[in-house]
């Protein structure tokens, strides 16, 4: 499949943004600047990037607890994301969501989600809204391998299939549900076989291969836009970090991480860009520097952003009710 040079550069940029944002988030968490839980996407960049490269701004995504990559790939702004991780007033959610709950309605980002498996049915609802409006939008639902053991996965695939909803189910099979390996949490090797049960196409691709992901999602998006219903795409990948920052990662066999790091998705793309004359080494170096700067600016923005006012804790529960505060 021929991808235009501009789009290739754009995808490379996205992967760099995710990788560098996440590396910074890891350091900032370790430094105590980011509270709460942080689940990093390092190693899985090709999935979000390859999938979202097929989407328009008016398409939707649902995300997971490991959502930074999806949000960046769908056009999320690093500044507002970082400010949200810091719990600041200028964050995407005004400091009320944090890492696990970033949404951007203007870009069709229906939210990262702290409940494993909750996005499946929200994506179905999004597909229902699209079908009702008779537009050619689509919704990409991102989720991990372990969430396919939740009843929600099965309910959602069933409903999306019988209603032929424009939903692309993208499973990021990173081999683990927290500490439990895939072969201990399900008796199948490929999640994609579960598509058979719902009479929809199911495919497994190398999730560390940007082009494989892009092509699979491209085909699924085209089907969905034509009203031909949902697809299940399994992308086999790996997270370099633990489930969350601070995870001691006692559950990985020796050498597993190193083996996956040799299949890192980013050098593969760099090699392709060089060999095909899409970018020179200098241009890539420049782009890396640019992204470093973007991330630095995002951190600076977050650090300068004020803490949310205490009164803001009482707002936005309802659209029309402000809850009672307290006197101290």
């Amino acid at each position: 499949m021929k991808i235009a040079n501009e789009q290739l550069k754009e995808m490379y940029l996205t992967m760099l943004k995710i990788r560098k944002f996440e590396k910074s988030a890891s350091e900032l968490f370790a430094a105590g600047k980011i509270p709460g839980f942080v689940h990093l996407y390092i190693g899985e960049e090709a999935v979000a990037t390859g999938a979202c490269a097929n989407l328009r701004e008016d398409d939707y995504i649902t995300s997971t607890h490991r959502g930074h990559g999806h949000i960046i790939a769908k056009g999320g702004d690093l500044k507002y994301m970082m400010a949200e991780l810091f719990g600041r007033e200028d964050g995407y959610c005004k400091g009320k969501g944090g890492s696990m709950h970033i949404a951007d309605a203007t870009k069709g980002i229906l939210g990262a989600n702290g409940i494993v498996g909750a996005g499946h049915n929200i994506a179905v609802g999004s597909g229902l809204a699209i079908q009702h409006r008779k537009t050619d939008q689509v919704c990409v639902c991102f989720f991990g391998d372990a969430s396919t053991n939740q009843s929600t996965f099965h309910e959602a695939l069933n409903l999306a299939s019988i209603w032929k909803l424009p939903v692309i189910f993208v499973c990021e099979n990173n081999g683990y549900g927290i500490s439990v390996s895939q072969k201990r949490h399900q008796a199948i090797a490929d999640v994609s076989v579960r598509a058979t049960a719902y009479n929809m196409p199911g495919i497994t691709v190398d999730g560390n291969d940007l082009f494989a992901v892009y092509e699979a999602v491209n085909e699924a998006v085209a089907r969905a836009r034509k009203g031909q219903g949902p697809t299940l795409i399994e992308c086999k990948t790996y997270r370099y970090r633990g489930h969350f920052e601070g995870d001691p990662v006692v559950y990985r066999p020796e050498g597993e991480l190193e083996a996956w790091m040799r299949k890192d998705p980013i050098p593969k793309v760099e090699k392709y860009l060089l060999e095909n004359g899409v970018m020179t080494e200098e241009e890539m170096k420049q782009l890396n520097d640019d992204v470093d700067k973007m991330v630095e600016e995002a951190i600076e923005f977050a650090e300068k952003s004020p803490l949310p006012s205490l009164e803001s804790a009482l707002k936005d529960v309802y659209s029309d009710i402000v809850e009672e505060g307290r006197v101290r």
């Binding site: 609802g125 999004s126 959602a156």
Partner: peptide, 25 residues
Amino acid sequence: ERIRDTPISEGAIVGAAVGSAACGI
């Protein structure tokens, strides 16, 4: 299209309401 029978999947019923409401219906 406007009165839809669903499977017996209460999670999907409420979820479909959440997702579709979030997308403007």
